[in-house]
Write a protein that binds this DNA or RNA. Structure first.
Lengths: 332, 332
DNA sequence: TTGAAAGCGCTAACAA
DNA sequence: TTGTTAGCGCTTTCAA
């Protein structure tokens, strides 16, 4: 049997309430009493039971995190930002992988709610009506992180993906390119697909370049899909001279795909990636990339969530963090 | 107020005990009763409170995971293995980053124990006496994952790092090299430092090659430390012709460091990395690397933990998973 | 097959 | 400053 607050109370010759006060740092305890209690705790090796505390207080100091895939270089960095801020505010996180699967997402949401988490950080791709319905039914606050909410109903933390993509493509155009291709994620994916694609289109159209269907390829975010896309681009009659990739990993594939066929980056082809993961510095030539501050997105999401959990006033429900381009050797 | 088991009982016209039985899938319930209860649950939108259940049953179906850094490509893959198996056995995980910091590790251990986790997977570098003491005091099982326990007192899952390093270095020697260098992690680190270093030494000595102090550099696991180490190696009078790096990321640094100075890999210098992370396929030349099955180590660790939590008989407390070398273009 | 009732270990009024 | 006491929502005997 584990020692309980009751054992400590008896050992110290005080009531349970007093022990509880000491454990919770309540100042209304006489120093000598506090000392007695602390000694009893030490002697008995008492360890408070957070489950009992959670039941009685209705707060678990635990938050749920639903993430597509923790092994992704992108999300793991985000998760780190979340965890660091959670720790700072004395929360623990329950981490769940959803694999971009809607059923899993909904199921995990309910599991976390059963576990009485005090709040949830949600990362996903699509926010469907069913998501919206479930989110609304949640008794605790939910913050969307690196996830687009079309209805803008829920608090969220993102960068402006459309604008970021626009900036990248515009830079390529200003470098003199008219044959600018894009390796996109699935267009069903609001973040990595649709938004970036929209930015690409806008930049192309504003520059009065005729949109060319062949210059947009849909990849699956992997390195290999970058290589394949590049082979396809190089097979075109009019091969592109600049390429914007939706993620760094695909951009690396693009670069190596070009090099494998004897092309030089950036002289024959300029390449820009997205996310500015550590990979960007680990290629030759090093990769110019749109900086998405992943750690910060996670950290800000968690910070925002703490505000909701504390019922603080929140002025900015939908936050857009700044982005920029980190220029390296894959562009001129 | 949330609806409780009591509300459901009243709504269905049965006792709390019966509702509890239905919720927990106890077969001793008449089908018609079960149906009544299920309907009441549906009508009321009842959601069981896992915290109350945890307090009453003394099982939380939650396990703690202490990991150095979830944003590392290595550990995040391991974490994914842990989480997948946890999910399979209906556990959730509380994930905590320790940054290889002993105080944090001990503190997190206690926090997790307060939260009444049913078991813990621990990843760290050093297992000190204080760790041992704390682990022994834990009321729930602890499994060490990718972490060396010098005393072999606790269940653990690893590969044989010494042998793996030996195999890599031996391969280089058999390729005709006598000037084989190593970029190691800190020798205080049992896994990435000491064990691999020991394997390197053994291979060198067995081949009757005189050990050369200049050929061992201590890096900090980063890409940049690989570049720096390479600069140092190339500054030597007798530069090494083959290099074994303790991690893939450092190996990439080695390769690019060599290329930046005009050397060709593998013709001038052969390179072998360690871990076979996805990075290994994302360099030119692609990197030969010792395969450490990270996902599997995580998965097996969690599986092992479930056995302890279920009080099953465990035959192999200390498991060593097989390793091999994945040959790519950075070696001949 | 079902129900009654005693906890699980703690917090939070309220009273003293 | 301290103690009393009634829950928090559930599981688990034990009895019927």
């Amino acid at each position: 049997m584990n020692t309980t607050i009751y054992d400590v109370a008896r050992e110290a010759g005080v009531s349970m309430a007093t022990v509880s006060r000491v454990v919770n740092g309540n100042p209304n305890v006489k120093p000598t009493t506090r000392k007695k209690v602390l000694e009893a705790i030490e002697r008995l090796g008492y360890r408070p039971n957070a489950v009992a505390r959670g039941l009685a207080s209705k707060r678990t100091t635990t938050v749920g995190v639903i993430i597509p895939d923790i092994s992704s270089i992108f999300f793991s960095e985000l998760a780190r930002g979340i965890e660091d801020i959670a720790t700072m505010y004395k929360y623990n996180i329950i981490l769940c992988n959803s694999d971009h699967n809607k059923e899993k997402e909904i199921h995990l949401l309910n599991t976390l709610l059963e576990k009485q988490v005090d709040g949830i950080v949600f990362m996903g791709s699509q926010i469907t009506e069913e998501h919206v319905e479930q989110f609304k039914r949640s008794p605790v606050p939910i913050v969307l992180s690196a996830t687009i909410d079309p209805g803008k109903e829920f608090p969220s933390v993102n960068i402006n993906y459309e604008q970021a993509a626009y900036d990248a493509v515009k830079f390529l155009i200003e470098n003199g390119h008219t044959k600018v291709a894009m390796l996109s994620g699935s267009l069903e994916d609001p973040v990595n697909g649709y938004q970036k694609y929209a930015g690409y289109r806008r930049a192309i159209e504003e520059a009065n370049i005729t949109f060319n269907d062949d210059y947009v390829v849909i990849g699956d975010y992997t390195y290999d899909s970058g290589i394949e896309a590049m082979e396809m681009f190089l097979g075109l009659n009019e091969r592109p001279t600049a390429i914007f990739a939706g993620t760094d990993e695909m951009a690396l594939g693009i670069i190596h795909g070009a090099q494998d066929k004897g092309y030089n980056v950036p002289n024959d082809i300029e390449v820009i990636g997205f996310d500015n993961t550590r990979l960007a510095a680990m290629v030759r030539p090093t990769l110019t990339s749109v900086v998405q501050p992943m750690y910060d997105i996670g950290a800000v999401s968690m910070r925002l969530l703490t505000k909701y959990m504390n019922k603080e006033e929140v002025s900015d429900e939908v936050v857009l963090l700044p982005h920029r381009i980190e220029f390296r050797q894959s562009t001129k």
